[in-house]
Design a protein around this nucleic acid. Structure first.
Length: 657
RNA sequence: GCUGAUGUAGCUCAGUCGGUAGAGCACUUCCUUGGUAAGGAAGAGGUCAUCGGUUCAAGUCCGAUCAUCAGCUCCA
């Protein structure tokens, strides 16, 4: 085909709205964007060709579905931030020559680059690097993609770039790949599959947020690198909005709100990572426990209590002690008069105790399923750097149950556990819950107990239950626990970090290790299956996330103080007391503010304290036998008789709205 | 555990060059008795995280420890 013929050939481009355009072969995403509108061409960052992200200026030679990618999409963020990480690397290279670069991807919240440098980066350096990045933006450098054979790339990064990290990636991660791509950006070149921004000029605002360390390739035996995090935007305005969101997240931080609202405390005198519930926080926890206990009673669960410690043999038998010895408090060692030694472990989990309850008597197939349940406090010596308020603690309470069932009951029981978890999340107002099916990694068999056949069966059961419940899930390979696959319910905190809350886990391994059995209809012994499940997960973590989710504005049934009576002046104190007494008599957690402060101040403090109901009593109300109600963040709701008020509040509490 | 940062009144934070500690809010008392987000005045409150070092002198400089924060690694 001659050049002339090629230029004359045309291709059909299908746009997202279904319209088809005919353009010359070799047209680029940019040409197409420009033909749609000038504004779109300005905003265009890249293009997807038949769903594949592609550089904006890459020529397109055949019919294709095309979508112009702008910053206003997850893919747009990804491409923008990935390019920003390259621009940061270039800035660092210009400011600190000799720096070498490891991995520099986009993340959900921006980007980072792992840097190996003689220079120890400090906060001040970040401002310098930001300035340099904006300057590189102003230089309007066109990014050029170059494809070369892997062997040529190895030579290039060895001699020209002198970057051993990229060479290692080429020799290792990419060893199966024949042709790799490089992106040139002025004096800087990176190994990268792309796509990238057409020019550095798209970068208009950048904020480098922090410096931390990371291990090269995530391997703690390899050298540690300096990881610099940042976020970037195509406009100043977007950056300002982002900073405002960060500030809002800071206001919602459960550690901050927990202290302000007197919910819990952490004290080095008690111990790192050992939260203590203050009276107001204890109310929330107790209400949640009551709620779940009621629900579980309806669903056939049997409450049990077990001690906080257990003989170490129990955990050796279960496999937890050898598997998790690093993250447990050291054993308590006890010598009796004869010098015989016994060792106990602060229990890191509740299951072994429950298994022994199960096997304490002979079970018939008619008895199953047996659902043992306990709010069991467990202790795990988490790494110090991991501790985080309530969401990562060393002492915490699981709403733990173990369901012992026959294999033919398993899928039904998993479904029941999923249903309960969904009911809990729905009641607490968590709409954005991600569900992960946590499967084992067959390439890593030594991490897991049981046989491959058992795992296949368990994972099939989990998947069948999730499908039957119509859950929208994703698969997490290698996320299973050592004894079985899990269904994990994951939510995000105020800062966008993900936390696993509820979990449903299938276990064929523990029944084996604890030799659990039941007598079947054939009179023979059979092995039950165990489901471990915890809808809240940990009470501490759940409440931590709940604090951030609600910003401390709890629903009425959970609010530590549900109502506060605010007398306007001293001459109505007697009347206010009768109102207070009526609220208490109706079972409402009510306080009364009889200080000699003006009503405006009392209201302000009740608002700041996030008390849902402010019950205002003045001369007017006393004369009519009414009170006026002001709802937190809603304002004046009008006047009600005291009886009508207690009914209204009481109804909202029992219905857990 | 690793890397970096931080630690001053109950809270949020000042504290210069090393020279014996300050504000606002909260708290206590008094005045004020008021109508839907801050009335006024006075007072009290500190082993500057802990331990050690340098110095005539340390909140300030150095070291260790503890705790917290961000990230990494881990998560039954």
């Amino acid at each position: 085909m001659s050049d002339i013929q090629e230029q004359q050939a045309s291709i059909a481009i299908t746009l997202p709205d279904g319209t088809v355009r005919t353009v010359p072969s070799g047209s680029t995403g940019f040409d197409i964007a420009l033909s749609i509108g000038k504004r779109l061409a300005e905003d265009a960052l890249a293009v997807t060709v038949n769903g594949r992200p592609t550089d904006l200026h890459a020529p397109i030679h055949s019919d294709a579905r095309i979508e112009i990618v702008t910053f206003d999409s997850p893919l747009g963020h990804d491409i923008f931030w990935h390019s920003a990480s390259h621009i940061m690397a270039q800035a660092i290279e210009e400011l600190f020559p000799g720096s070498r670069f490891g991995a520099g991807p986009a993340t959900e919240q921006g980007f980072y680059y792992d840097v190996a440098s003689e220079h120890r980066f400090r906060e001040e350096d970040l401002r310098l690097i930001e300035q340099k990045m904006l300057e590189i933006g102003k230089r309007d450098i066109r990014l050029k993609r170059e494809e070369m054979k892997r062997s040529d790339a190895i030579a290039y990064f060895t001699s020209v770039r002198n970057d051993p990290y990229k060479v290692e990636i080429l020799n290792d991660t990419l060893k199966e790949v024949e042709t790799v791509s490089l992106y040139h950006q002025g004096s800087f070149t990176d190994l990268c599959s792309g796509p990238h921004l057409p020019t550095t000029a798209k970068l208009k605002a950048v904020l480098l947020t922090n410096i931390s360390s990371s291990y090269w390739r995530g391997d703690s035996s390899r050298e540690s690198m300096q990881r610099i995090y940042g976020i970037a935007f195509p406009s100043e305005k977007l950056l300002r909005e982002h900073v405002a969101r960060l500030e809002e997240a800071k206001r919602r931080d459960h550690r901050k709100l927990g202290a302000e609202l007197d919910l819990f405390m952490l004290s080095p005198e008690i111990g790192s990572g050992l939260p203590v519930w203050l009276p107001k926080g204890a109310i929330i926890r107790s209400e949640l426990e009551t709620f779940l206990k009621e629900e579980q009673r309806k669903r056939g669960y049997l409450p049990v209590y077990t001690p906080h410690i257990g003989n170490i043999g129990l955990y050796k038998r279960s496999g937890h002690y050898p598997y998790y010895s690093d993250s447990q408090f050291p054993p308590l060692t006890y010598h009796d008069e004869d010098g015989k030694q016994e060792q106990y472990l602060l229990k890191p989990m509740n299951c072994p105790h429950h298994h022994l309850i199960y096997s304490s008597k002979l079970r018939s197939y008619r008895d199953l399923p047996i659902r043992l349940t306990e709010f069991g406090t467990v202790y795990r010596h988490e790494q110090s750097g991991e501790l985080n308020g309530l969401v990562r603690a060393r002492g915490f309470t699981q709403d733990d149950s173990h369901i012992y069932c026959r294999p033919d009951q398993l899928v039904d029981e998993i479904c029941n556990a999923i249903d309960l978890t969904q009911f809990v999340f729905l009641t607490l107002g968590f709409a954005e819950v991600q569900t992960r099916l946590s499967m084992h990694d067959p390439a890593n068999r030594e991490k897991y107990g049981g046989t491959e056949d058992v795992w296949k069966q368990a994972e099939k059961d989990v998947r069948e239950a999730a499908d039957r419940m119509g859950i929208d899930y994703f698969i997490g390979i290698g996320e299973a626990s050592f004894y079985g696959p899990k269904i994990d319910f994951i939510v995000r905190d105020a800062l966008g970090r993900k936390w696993q809350l509820g979990t449903v886990q299938v276990d064929y391994v523990m029944p084996e290790r604890f030799d659990l059995s039941y007598v079947g209809s054939d009179g023979q012994k059979h092995r039950p299956v165990v489901i471990h499940r915890a809808p809240f997960g940990s009470m501490e973590r759940f409440i931590g996330v709940l604090i951030e989710h609600t910003a401390g504005n709890f629903p009425l049934w959970l609010a530590p103080v549900q109502a506060i009576v605010l007398p306007i002046a001293e001459d109505v104190h007697e009347y206010a007391k009768t109102v207070h007494a009526a609220l208490l008599a109706a079972g409402i957690r009510a306080e009364i503010d009889m200080r000699s402060e003006k009503i405006g101040k009392k209201i302000r403090e009740a608002e700041v304290g996030k008390i849902p109901c402010m019950v205002i009593a003045g001369q007017k109300e006393r004369d009519t036998g009414e009170v006026s109600l002001r709802r937190h963040r809603k304002g004046d709701m009008g006047s009600f008789s005291v009886a009508a008020l207690t009914d209204m509040i009481g109804k909202e509490i029992t219905e857990r709205i």
